[in-house]
Amino acid sequence: MIDLRRVQVLRVLAEHGTVSAAATALYVTPSAVSQQIRSLATELGVELLRREGRNVRLTAAAEALLEHADALYEHWERARADIASRDMELTGTLRFTGVSSALAAVVAPAMALLRDRHPGIDTHVRELDSTQIFRVLLADSADIAVGFPTATTPPVDDPRFEQRVFFDDIQDLLVPSGHPLAQRESVTLRDAATEPWILDEPGGDTYDTVITSCAAAGFTPHIVHHVKEWFAVSTFVAQGFGVCLLPRLAPIPNEHAVTRIPLSGSPRPIRTIIGGIRRGAGDHPVIAAGLSALAEVGHDIAAG
């Protein structure tokens, strides 16, 4: 018999690329990851990893096992859902992960709905970047991930996950209140082509969105500062150090002297807020309740 927990370790190792990174994702030691892989290899009677200097590489046998692992885990998730659906009362812990703006605007209100409607459900939240949320989902360290697609998030047809669209988060141009553009009702993205820009680091959640949108508008932004957290970004804009694109979900402190200007014309950048679960888990009654609450909040945001 194959221990599915060991197959899961192999899946996480394949996703993260190194034993150390897999151990971090699984909250175990690197030696524990190595031991699990060795035990799985013994169970199968094949070699699963090969050393290449300080790194490891999956063998052809490991790749073949992973092709079957996705289907195995989908069946397992459906089995868990079927077992849980036999209980009349919804109980258990529902674990959310997501980006900060989505947690504040979507997940927190959804958790409040769950608290009122299903007091037997405990909730837990973990803030992460969109580049990380699917990894903790795969590692079974979260049940529902809420974020938006980036260059590194899994495609919609990834066999390991199911993805659901909640709503589109429109982005505006944020400028200092005394800026010449601040008096206009709307601007095009190209109107800011000569401005200094404030972005997060390359590879961050919003970096690719801004770069791609500016390229579509016919220019490359002149990036002068790399700032990630929206409160800090708004502060730097208020002090005249640059402009940025700000999602509607991200609030602006009243004391910041900034102006949010709607974008017109093309392109009009948006962030599509999505929810992700492990494939097959959608019928689990607790997870289904969480998805329903998120969809309800998302509908209200889109309507209002």
Rank of each mutant, 00 (worst) to 15 (best):
M1F: 06
L4Q: 09
Q8G: 03
L10G: 04
L10C: 06
V12S: 06
E15W: 04
E15N: 10
G17I: 09
V19M: 07
S20P: 00
A23Y: 07
Y27E: 11
P30C: 13
Q36N: 15
A41R: 03
E43N: 06
L44M: 15
E52W: 00
V56L: 13
T59M: 08
A61F: 02
A64R: 14
A71C: 01
Y73E: 12
W76D: 12
R78G: 00
R78D: 00
A81R: 05
D82C: 04
R86T: 14
M88C: 03
L90C: 11
L94C: 10
V99W: 01
L103G: 03
L114C: 10
R117Y: 01
G120Q: 09
H124W: 10
H124Y: 11
A142R: 06
I144V: 14
V146E: 03
V146A: 06
F148G: 04
P149T: 07
P154W: 05
V156T: 13
R160A: 13
E162A: 14
V165C: 04
P180D: 04
P180F: 07
R184M: 10
E185I: 01
R190L: 03
E195M: 08
P196N: 13
P202L: 10
P202V: 11
D205E: 11
I211E: 05
T220N: 06
T220D: 11
E229I: 10
A232K: 08
F241Q: 11
C244K: 00
C244L: 00
P251Q: 03
I252M: 02
E255N: 12
H256G: 00
H256P: 00
I261A: 01
P269A: 07
T272H: 07
I277P: 04
R279P: 02
A281E: 02
H284Q: 08
V286M: 09
I287D: 06
I287S: 05
I287W: 03
A288Q: 11
A289K: 06
A289I: 10
A293H: 08
